[in-house]
Design a protein around this nucleic acid. Structure first.
Lengths: 104, 104
DNA sequence: ACAATCATTGGCCGTTTTACCAACCATCCA
DNA sequence: TGGATGGTTGGTAAAACGGCCAATGATTGT
């Protein structure tokens, strides 16, 4: 069904994480679901901006949303983001300290 | 030394991967080092374009370069990218198939 | 029905990204 | 030294991104 090459698909997912606000949101959601209003306070931007960030991540399959009452609650689609961020931190560590990179 | 918040640092690394050509390059480098010319053939863009992609990833600490003779050989700074891409594929799979996401 | 709250969507605009070409730097060999 | 090969850098133009504001749903309570 999806005929895009693998690296394009992968880049699409990665791109949806490639913004400081979105990374912050993902970090926060590892701790459990949050409403858009809560995430807006966290990020410190206009709620419309945060809503668009969430839409991007939803489209990429990174988060899922559930409506309860007046609120939309977002949570991670996948717990494996902890591993994901660990990989990222390895690279960041190499970059910052010149530390050697050991396997997971 | 680095006082930027963690999520900004993380986003910087992720951003350096967030392009189809760069993802393709990383995939290829998991198989071993390549020269700029080889990567240019792979990507199918101008060599100057590929050179700039590599510079972005080098600055982010994702790749390292070694000059031997006339060639610049790039390789991954860290073998953990296999894990990294596996995480990405989990998300991509959820997105594409609606498949459930199991832990690593 | 009306008002209040939570969130999404459209529009505008400044910034960033990306691609190509051209020019330049570096290395090796004749 | 001159030429060929391999790569980087600067310039520029098109496209994508990201932010806020304003307007529009959607849901709940009065």
């Amino acid at each position: 069904m999806n005929q895009r090459p693998r690296h394009v698909i992968r880049a699409g997912v990665i791109k949806a994480l490639a913004h400081p606000s979105r990374t912050l949101i993902v970090e926060t959601l590892t701790d459990g679901e949050r409403s858009v209003g809560e995430l807006t306070s966290l990020v410190g931007a206009d709620i419309s901006t945060v809503s668009k960030h969430l839409a991007i991540m939803k489209k990429a399959g990174i988060v899922v949303v559930e409506k309860r009452g007046l609120n939309q609650y977002y949570r991670l689609a996948c717990p494996c983001f902890l591993d994901f961020l660990r990989c990222v931190d390895f690279i960041a560590g190499v970059n910052a300290d010149g530390a050697s990179c050991r396997a997971a």
